[in-house]
Simulated assay, not measured.
Amino acid sequence: MFSLSTSHLQRIFNKLDKNGDGRVSIDELMWLLQRIGIYTCREDELELLLGKTTLDFIDFIFFYDSIINMDENKRRDDQDSLFENDLRKAFKVFDLNGDGLISSEEHQIALSRLGLWDENCSSLDSKIIINVYDTNSDGFLDFGEFKNMMLFAQS
Rank of each mutant, 00 (worst) to 15 (best):
E145S: 03
F146Y: 09
D142Q: 08
T53K: 14
G20M: 03
F143N: 00
E84N: 03
I38T: 12
N148A: 13
T6H: 10
F63V: 08
H8S: 15
S5T: 15
D95K: 08
D27W: 09
M1C: 11
K89H: 14
N14W: 01
M30D: 15
W31M: 11
R11T: 10
N120K: 14
N73W: 02
Y133T: 08
G144A: 10
D125H: 06
D71L: 09
S104G: 01
R113C: 13
T54W: 05
I12T: 15
F94N: 01
F140D: 01
C121T: 08
E106D: 14
M1D: 11
I67N: 08
D118W: 07
W117P: 00
S3C: 12
Q10H: 15
L49C: 11
A90Y: 03
S123C: 07
L87M: 14
F63M: 10
A90K: 08
D118H: 13
D142L: 01
L16Y: 01
E106P: 03
N131A: 15
Y64I: 12
G20V: 05
Q154G: 02
W31R: 12
G22R: 06
G100P: 03
L46R: 02
I128D: 07
C121F: 11
S122I: 03
E84P: 00
K15T: 07
S123V: 07
S81H: 11
N136F: 10
S7N: 13
T135P: 01
G100T: 03
R42W: 02
D77Q: 14
D99N: 13
L33M: 15
Y39C: 14
S7R: 12
T135H: 09
D134Q: 04
I102K: 02
G139N: 07
L4E: 13
E45W: 07
I12Y: 04
M30H: 15
G51L: 04
D134I: 02
I130G: 03
G22D: 08
S81K: 14
D95S: 10
L151V: 13
L48D: 06
F2M: 11
G51E: 07
I128E: 13
N69I: 12
E84K: 05
L49E: 15
N14T: 13
L114S: 09
L101W: 02
I68R: 15
N120W: 01
K147S: 07
T135F: 11
L16F: 04
I109V: 09
D78N: 06
D44S: 14
R35N: 12
S7F: 11
S3L: 11
S66V: 06
K89E: 15
R76W: 03
K18M: 04
R88N: 05
F94K: 06
M30F: 09
L82T: 11
A153T: 12
D44Q: 14
T53G: 08
D59S: 04
K74V: 08
G144F: 04
R113W: 07
T40W: 08
F2V: 13
M149G: 02
K92Q: 08
G51V: 06
N148Y: 06
H107S: 07
L50C: 06
G115Q: 09
E43M: 10
D71P: 03
V24E: 00
L82I: 14
E28A: 04
D56F: 01
W31H: 12
Q79C: 05
D71N: 14
G51I: 07
F146D: 00
F91W: 12
S126Q: 00
I129P: 01
L33W: 01
K74R: 12
S3N: 14
F83P: 00
F94A: 02
L114F: 10
L48P: 00
D44C: 12
M149C: 09
